[in-house]
Design a protein around this nucleic acid. Sequence first.
DNA 1: GTCTATACCGAGATAGAC
DNA 2: GTCTATCTCGGTATAGAC
Lengths: 194, 194
Amino acid sequence: MKKGEETKQSILEHGLRLFSSKGYEETSLKDIASCVNIKTPSIYAYFSSKDELFEKIVDFVIDDYVKFIEHQASTMESLSIKDQLYNLLEKLNKYYYMNDRGIFLKRYGVFPPEKFKEHIFQNNSMVESEIRKLIYTILDAKSEDHKFIDRETIATSFICLLDGMLFYLMNCSYEEYERRLESTWKVFWKGILE
Amino acid sequence: MKKGEETKQSILEHGLRLFSSKGYEETSLKDIASCVNIKTPSIYAYFSSKDELFEKIVDFVIDDYVKFIEHQASTMESLSIKDQLYNLLEKLNKYYYMNDRGIFLKRYGVFPPEKFKEHIFQNNSMVESEIRKLIYTILDAKSEDHKFIDRETIATSFICLLDGMLFYLMNCSYEEYERRLESTWKVFWKGILE
DNA sequence: GTCTATACCGAGATAGAC
DNA sequence: GTCTATCTCGGTATAGAC
C-alpha cells in the first residue's frame, strides 16, 4: 500500500474508534490527527471536511455490518434451527463487543447528530430488515420437531433482545455480559416455542 | 411561584428537552435561552455553568425515575404476577415514551459525555438495581399456579427487553412501537414459565 | 503530502449598566 | 434578574511554503 493510502486508512480507523467512544462533537480533528501522528490540516488532503470523513465512516460501517450479516447465512446452513438462532445471536453480539464498528452503529443508529439523521436513518432500517430476512430464512428452511410461534413476533423479539444487550455491553464486564446473554437467550428460546 | 423560580424551572425543562433530543454538545446555552425567551447570560443568574445545569438535570431525572419505579410497587399489589409484570413493563415503557426524561436517562446512561461518566454511571447502576428489586418483590410475593425459572434470569431478561425497546422507541411510530412491545412481552412471558 | 501560520466563527463565560 | 458588550478559547477550515 502506498504511503498516502496508509495515512488515509489510519485516519479512517482512528476516526472510527474515537467517534465510537467519544461521539461526534467531542471528537476533534486534532484528536484524530494526533493519533495518526500528523497535524490537523493534513487530514484535508484526504477529506474535504469533518462531515465528509464522518459520512465515509458511516457508510463503511453499515456496509461492513450488512456484509457480516449476509455472511452468517452461508456459514451455518447445516445446523439445527436452535443452533442457528443461537449462533446468530452470539455472532452479532460478538461483532458488537469485539470492535468499534458495533458501538458506532448503535450509537449513531439511536442518537445521530442532527445533520446526519436522514442519511443514517435510511441505512439503518436496511440493517434491521437484513436481520429479519435472515431470521425468516432460518425459520422457514426446514420443519423440525419444534413448533414455533409466528416468525414476525420471533424476529421482533430477537432484534429487541439484541439491542437491549447494548446496555450490558457498555456497562458490564465481559464475563457479566456473557452471563446475561445466556439468560436472555434462555428466556427467548423458551418463549418462541409453540 | 415567584418570577425567578419560574424562569429557573423553564430553563431546567427546556434544557432537559433539548439535551434529550440533540445531546449535550449540540445543545448550546443560546438554544436553551431562546426557548425560555431570555438572553444567554441570564442563565448564569441561576446556574454557574453549563456543566452545573446539566448535572442538576441528571440528578432530577434519575431521582424522578427511581421515585416512579418505587411508586409502581404500591400501585399494583393486588394483581396477579402476570399482570404485575406486564403492568411494570408497560408503565416503564410509557414513561420512556411519554416524556423527555426517559430518553434523557437512556441517552446519557449509555453514552455519557466524558466529564459526566462517573457521576452518571454510579446513579445508573442504582436504577437497574431498583428495577431488579421490584421484580424480585413481585415474584416472591405469592406462590401461584405458575412456576417460574430463577428470578435472576427473569430480571436480567426483563431489563434487557426494556432497554431493547429504546431502539423501537426512537425509530418507530407509536402504533408500531406498541405492536412490538406486545411481541416482546409475549415471548418473555412464555419464556419465564418453568 | 505535510507542515506553519492564520483566518474565522461560535461556544461558554464575565463585567457592569439598568 | 436581565440586558449589552466583550473576552477567551478551541474548533473547523484555508493559504501558501517546503
